[in-house]
Design a protein around this nucleic acid. Structure first.
Length: 219
DNA sequence: GGCCAGGTCAAAG
DNA sequence: CTTTGACATGGC
């Protein structure tokens, strides 16, 4: 067994299941993923609440809404000059791709959907994989800044290349939807509690000796 | 006040 | 092909 899997067990033991992504529906998960970029979840939550109250948490409604209107609701999530347009364009794409039927949209091989997602403006590897994993039910490992930082720090991989990091996890962790969802969630949870920035005292850390911030780990 | 947050994209080197 | 800058708000 690889260490990537061992780390997972420890994080799960320590924090328990996280039940991510915090979204009611698949579409909400998509909106969240698109808004989440480079912002805090708290702001995204507010933005989504705004959209919901305005009746815009709906593919068709969002696809037809004027940019300034969308902007008013999601401004709090930052990057308000790019996110609203990307959000709307994405909805329009979903519509003419599958008539807004998400189940149908995702009902294709993972690589095919992934490629289609990456073609959309504002959708990079992480956002695409988050959407696949949390909205589409596709078992694919999400690599975010925390994954790279923590994983690199504890020596799970050397590279900084997205696909390579992803492969590392997918090779050592059973290809299971819930497991992938939990692992990602646990890494975020862990980063937010103990491993944020350089934490000199990492006592009580669930990955303990592996979580050695500020110092190169010896092999 | 400065730095950062669950990135992405276009322009340089 | 790798690195760098811009994007923008809110919280600590």
């Amino acid at each position: 067994m690889g260490r990537a899997r061992d780390v997972y067990e420890r994080l799960l033991d320590h924090y328990g299941p996280q039940h991510w992504w915090p979204a009611e529906t698949a579409f909400e998960a998509i909106v969240g993923a698109l808004l989440m970029q480079q912002t805090s979840w708290q702001n995204v939550e507010v933005a989504i609440g705004n959209l919901r109250r305005a009746g815009l948490l709906d593919i068709r409604a969002l696809a037809e809404a004027p940019i300034p209107v969308i902007r008013r609701h999601v401004r709090i999530a930052g990057l308000y000059r790019t996110k609203p347009a990307r959000l709307r364009a994405f909805c329009r794409h979903l519509l003419d791709r599958s008539g807004g039927d998400l189940a149908r949209y995702f009902a294709r091989p993972t690589d095919v959907v992934r490629a289609d997602l990456l073609d959309q403006n504002g959708v990079g590897p992480e956002t695409a994989d988050s959407i696949l994993l949390y909205a589409g039910g596709h078992p694919i490992f999400v690599v975010d800044a925390y994954t790279e930082r923590i994983g690199g720090r504890i020596g799970l991989f050397r590279t900084g290349e997205y696909r390579a990091i992803q492969r590392t996890f997918e090779q050592h962790v059973p290809r299971d939807l819930t497991t992938y969802q939990e692992y990602h969630a646990l890494l975020v949870r862990h980063a937010k509690t103990l491993c944020r920035r350089a934490n000199p005292a990492c006592a009580g850390c669930p990955v303990q000796s592996l979580c050695d911030f500020g110092r190169r780990r010896k092999r």
